[in-house]
Amino acid sequence: MDEKVTREIFPRDSRKSYGLVELMKKTAPIVKKEPEDTVYVWPNLLMIEIICAILVTVGLMVLIQFEHAPLRSLADPSTTPNPMRAPWYFLGLQELLVYFDPWYAGVVLPGMIIAGLMLFPYLDVNPKGVGYYTYSERKFAVFNYSFGFAIWWITIVIGTYLRGLDWQWYWPWSNHLEHMNPALVTLIPLHLIFVNWFHVSEGVGKLFGDIIFIGYFALGTIIPMIIWKPMYKAMGLWRYLTFSFFFLSMMGVALKIVLRLLFNIKYVLVTPWINI
């Protein structure tokens, strides 16, 4: 498509304060695209926009016949509702509080999600698949986006339907009025498991945890570098390291959810300042 652009007569040059717009035959000022087969925005596109707007309005009008904006009793600092649910779009983050300490689930992780989203265009070096839907030409990128938002939506569903009093796990058929016995689930930091298994001191157990944590990031970064050399070459060192950090962190969230739900592991990394 690009080759067909009319020849640029006066190239852009910082010593000149003017540029010259290219000249084309036909009647459509679309840059770097052929002018064929175009239609006027008025009325063609405007009509579509108006139809969309009408459909949305009708949809909203129908919806509010069945459902109304909620209003509970007056705010009362002395009675906390139980369970206390955030609005649905933040329920995923609230649910993550089960798996991570608040500084991580509530602050660092949201920050990393935003940063990761913003960096995505700079980390994805695959030039293919612009302007049409394709999975086969960019499997890995689609996988990353889908995986991240799968966690986002699954935790929202868990928070909405599977959490009850005291934010405990309630099946739809459980009695939602009865408190669960918190003693049913005892959470243990990973290092205590090592202490039990290998009869080592607590310090050594913690060291195992640290090694697993650091090893996860180190090996997770180095192994793909060797196995998928072309990918690493295409990305370059810094882009690859940034990507690897975000990718492993995202996978880490999923791993931690599994560790916590299946094995009741509370922390992997235990330090005097932070625990993860």
Binding site: P29, T38, L45, I48
Partner: peptide, 14 residues
């Protein structure tokens, strides 16, 4: 208000 649109678009863009 309308000039956020181009004057013409490709038919396929519709």
């Amino acid at each position: 208000f309308l000039h956020i649109h181009p004057v013409k678009v490709r038919r396929s863009a519709l």
